[in-house]
Design a protein around this nucleic acid. Structure first.
Lengths: 192, 192
DNA sequence: TGCATAAAGCTAAAGCGTTTAGGCAAACGG
DNA sequence: CCGTTTGCCTAAACGCTTTAGCTTTATGCA
């Protein structure tokens, strides 16, 4: 019985790759065990249960995404930063659809707070430094940006925009133009 | 063996209620059979399989949501219509979290096109008649609105904004103000 | 070096959800 | 009142999850 060298880390990374191949929903302890050529029960020494495995994959993806975002934003400001930041999210979703789906998985608030969720919020806030938004408008804007990135990725993977003109890339570019314009001219008072 | 009177319709409606109670992900043929006090195999005369059941619940929710939206938008225009429309989505998510999750389920494009997906797109487009958007900007705007509604609901149910100031309702109102301002002043050309 | 011990991976088994095949009986049409 | 449809059943196979307890491997300390 040669040891394969299972680790929580290795399981999570392999699970992330598996998610990209077959979809996050389809990632299962059994399938993962098959990949490592190991009996299913062996995984349970490294992972609490199936839910725990998925949660860890989600947190891994969030971390990886935050790393990329931090990298992209460094040394940029204003619209330049906004576009770079947004493109990280979009590119990640296209390059790693399974991990991106994992990142969108609903985590209970405490788990999310302990993970990279905070980094994402802080980076989004950092983007807004290039615009002139005081609280609480900055928070509103952070939430708007989160909703758009989150929502667009979800709709795009669902095939919502595919095969219909104008193409998704064009829309994405124009949405970023629009968001930039909006942030530069955020309405302080509702206009009835 | 008294007959319960199972129907695809009844199964789907009960499945939708079940989703609101225990979460869409947890809706299972077994659980549904338990509710009707019927053996699981009996469901398979009315539903092709478990996936088919979920798809039907999703389509049901989309239809219900489209009905409400159509109702809300009737006789309104401009920001008034935008706000009413957006609030339908948000209220539905809070009133029927399970159905809303079902509505966000990824369907294959042909299934979605055959269902109420088209109505949603058309209504969103109708909202934009109150603003001055020519193609392709109108399409970009439709996609932006879809992303925001979709994304906000997803983040809100994940508890993203709960228990942190400012409260979610305030943000929602201000986001709608912002979107209204953006639509009235949509940037025709990127501003570098 | 050699042994003790913790950890890795295994077998076995129970539980639950899905799905199909085939059977009985209730409802319904003529 | 009879025949047909069909609603619901039993039975069984299959796959994923999870726990319990065992064997073997690796590792570190004497």
């Amino acid at each position: 019985m040669a040891r394969v060298g299972l680790t929580t880390q290795r399981l999570v990374r392999a699970g992330a790759e598996l998610a990209d191949e077959i979809g996050f929903e389809q990632v299962t302890a059994s399938e993962l065990a098959r990949r490592f050529d190991v009996k299913v029960a062996s995984l349970y020494s490294h992972v609490k249960n199936s839910q725990d495995l998925k949660t860890r994959i989600s947190l891994f993806a969030l971390e990886e995404l935050a790393d990329r975002a931090a990298d992209a934003v460094a040394g940029r400001a204003g619209k330049d930063a906004l576009v770079a930041f947004a493109n990280v999210y979009r590119d990640y979703g296209r390059e790693h659809p399974g991990r991106a789906a994992a990142a969108r998985m609903r985590l209970d608030p405490e788990t999310a707070a302990a993970g990279a969720g905070v980094r994402h919020a802080q980076m989004t806030r950092a983007i807004l430094r290039g615009y002139d938004l005081a609280e609480p408008d900055a928070t509103h804007a952070v939430r708007l940006l989160g909703s758009v990135f989150h929502g667009y990725a979800g709709l795009e993977v669902a095939g919502g925009f595919s095969h219909s003109a104008p193409d998704s890339q064009e829309t994405w570019t124009r949405i970023l133009d629009a968001l930039d314009a909006l942030l530069r001219n955020w309405p302080t008072e509702p206009t009835p």
